[in-house]
Computed example of a mutant assay.
Amino acid sequence: MDFQLSSDQRALRQGIRELLEGRFGPAALRAAAGRAGTPGERVLDRALWRELGTAGFFALRLPEADGGVGQGLPEAVLAFEEAGRVLLPGPLIATHLAAGTVPGAATGEAVVTAADGALVEWLDEADVVRGDTAGAEPLEPLDPLTPLHRLPAAPGRPPGPPPADAPLVSLLTAAEQIGSAARTCRTAVQHARTREQFGRPIGAFQAVQHLCADMLVRVELARAAVYAAAVTAGPADIAAARLLADEAAVRGARDCLQVHGGMGFTWESDVHLHLKRAWTRTHRTGGGTQSEELLADDLAAGPA
């Protein structure tokens, strides 16, 4: 099976990358992180949200007859990978999945969030909330750009997104994770080339070379799995891709911190933000044990 990107897919990826890096570069990321947690301060950039809608980000998989772009899962994965690369904040997946049913979601006029298991992201800034969020209590978020509410346990409350949406949430989360993993890998390599110790770039030392090489291997393996799952849309493929992508994002950010040393923990570096976002994403539908159990059930069932 050929997983090489077509010229249209490469153009889509490049267009999304240019839009996001132009509108949400490192300076904008730090400014947003600095505003987070300030009472009464809205962190979500509504103007950028509408720009994403105009660019077709939310309506990417909506049929053209319904005013959408008419693309498929592979194209959506490319777009969400770019969003993960720049740590774009906001309930992107929930709004994307609501594009065909919630007025204003496709164009970015409405911000949509959804209950996902015991957590809800961006509840206070959402215009539309899908699912039962009664009794939700705010949490102190690990990631300053992912405000969270915890849902109380209640009889009859569904454990996560509707069954039809759960695999898509997991796959698009995996796409964001590989975007973040790719960025931290690149950041580590750039730092290793320029930071000097004992009169030599630290990238000349074998221990640092091994860290960077391992990061690259995890990124490429996870990306191949995510792209393949976007084509097959098989639940087991998505589960495997999610596990690999979560590992690539979390371990990649941790290794990038190691390459940076103590500087990686400071606000002048974006590395700690990637680590916090990667950790936060692992708690979404399909993360960790959920994917492991789905894969175990698939293996136990044997060949179809």
Rank of each mutant, 00 (worst) to 15 (best):
F3A: 11
L5P: 07
R13L: 09
Q14N: 15
E18W: 08
G22T: 01
R23P: 10
R23H: 14
G25E: 04
R30D: 06
A31G: 01
R35W: 07
E41N: 06
V43T: 00
L44F: 04
R46I: 03
A47L: 12
L52F: 14
L52A: 02
G53K: 00
G56S: 10
G56L: 01
A59L: 11
L60C: 07
R61C: 10
L62P: 02
E64W: 09
G67Y: 01
G67K: 03
V69Q: 03
V69S: 08
G70Y: 01
G70L: 08
Q71H: 14
V77C: 03
A79Y: 03
F80R: 06
E81H: 08
V86H: 03
V86S: 02
G90E: 09
L97P: 03
V102M: 11
P103D: 01
A106C: 05
T107F: 08
E109T: 02
A110T: 06
A110I: 00
A110H: 08
V111E: 00
T113D: 03
A115M: 08
A118L: 14
W122A: 02
W122R: 00
W122G: 01
D124P: 11
G131A: 02
G135C: 09
E140I: 11
P144W: 04
L148T: 07
R150E: 13
G156Q: 05
R157Y: 01
G160V: 10
P162N: 07
V169S: 08
S170E: 01
L171I: 01
L171E: 05
T173M: 10
T173L: 15
E176D: 12
E176L: 15
E176F: 12
I178P: 12
G179V: 03
H191G: 10
H191I: 13
A192T: 12
R195L: 14
E196S: 13
G203W: 04
A204F: 14
A207W: 05
D214W: 14
M215N: 12
L216I: 07
R218W: 11
E220P: 07
R223S: 02
R223A: 04
A224G: 12
V226A: 09
V231D: 10
A233H: 13
P235S: 02
D237Q: 11
I238F: 06
A240P: 05
A241E: 00
D246M: 12
D255P: 12
D255Q: 14
V259H: 11
V259P: 14
H260A: 12
E268R: 15
S269F: 13
S269E: 15
S269D: 15
A278Y: 05
W279P: 02
H283I: 05
H283A: 11
R284P: 09
G286V: 00
T289R: 15
E292S: 14
E292F: 15
E293P: 02
L294I: 09
D297L: 13
D297P: 11
L299A: 13
P303A: 13
A304E: 15
